[in-house]
Design a protein around this nucleic acid. Sequence first.
DNA 1: CGGGATCCGTTACGATACTG
DNA 2: CAGTATCGTAACGGATCCCG
Lengths: 221, 221
Amino acid sequence: MAKPRSYKLLCPIARGLDRVGDRWTLLILRDLHAGPARFTDLQRGLTGIAANLLTERLAKLVEDGLARKTQGPHATTLYELTDLGRRTRTLIFELAMFGALFSSEGEVVDPGNLRTVAVTLGSAAEKVAVGDLNVVASFVVDGEEMEVKAQGGTASVSYSPATDPDVVLRTSYNSLMALSEGEITEHVFAQNHCQLELHVPGKEYDLFRLFALILAVFRTS
Amino acid sequence: MAKPRSYKLLCPIARGLDRVGDRWTLLILRDLHAGPARFTDLQRGLTGIAANLLTERLAKLVEDGLARKTQGPHATTLYELTDLGRRTRTLIFELAMFGALFSSEGEVVDPGNLRTVAVTLGSAAEKVAVGDLNVVASFVVDGEEMEVKAQGGTASVSYSPATDPDVVLRTSYNSLMALSEGEITEHVFAQNHCQLELHVPGKEYDLFRLFALILAVFRTS
DNA sequence: CGGGATCCGTTACGATACTG
DNA sequence: CAGTATCGTAACGGATCCCG
């Protein structure tokens, strides 16, 4: 394995970049924040990455103690974040907040998928959750399922099926991005771009309040 | 000018990386957060960067609207951050907090200089400043001077000489890093690694309280 | 001396093909 | 599924040179 470039500077910023500054590395971490993933899951999510690069990056993440290999169900190997790796969360969130300031002008080769938004959504939700929000939602986006939970003043997002959700929201990834980019309003989204399946009456209000708070983070950042 | 690689992904994290993800870019921004700088200042601060790369990176930062060229004193050209560029502050701070988790094992080719710590110090100071802290300090590190101000519950750091400081603290860059790395304690630092010039009696206590709070941010992060 | 531009060898990246 | 191998191309790093 080739030894990657290092800045060899004392500054903590340079030390940080020596771990996560290589091309693709932060995007890999972004996906891993959604939960353990297989090599092929990551490869599909990171459109355009070469297999050998993904191998190198994962090896370095493991070597630096940010990720580890584990055994998954059917003799598959999974990659997951270590505690140290999870500490990139606020960093990645700040990066997303910064990146949201720019329009995606020019050609976009890949729209992305649900894994890619899990970190940002989770961090934002956690940041805005207030005491009287109380909802457990299942998020089904283009067939992929996520759990969004807001309870007791905090919130979390998990890239796994929700157990006994109060409300199930089905939508498409494109609609979700159009909403976050401001191309459609929350109202239009609620009317035309999603369908709700309500298990506990009234819970859709809590869900949409959470949505509104999260969107506010991006708009006023 | 060669066109840099772009991820061409819709995700805001990828959009952010398309602006600041190239090698050296975040370190250049780090230095610019300390204030306007000349080409040569930046080149000296970023040990090892090639002139052509610095040229390319600066051009891209200007093109993306993160920096601009201005005229300095003696017909020199200065680079300074735009409002948009200044929004990388929290991102860079989070990167520094993450990087501080790792030891600088292995050879370090460059110790750094005062510009390189200005962002981190400023962000940390702003974060911890409390209401009853009130001090204007001049920081003289290896001849370079900085102003550290804490007043009215907020704090700021500026890479320029302080006007009428309450206290002047002289130290070396190495001592400062040893302190932040935990190699020496705050007490040892105060005793043996710096000299104070007190203009307003008692202000050294406010200054060292601010120090203690800033260090706590790094230790418990 | 400040602010680059040019050239060139080296390294990393990207695409495709192939394997246990 | 989880990578390895190969190879052309693009980016980086160092040095030198240029111009005001």
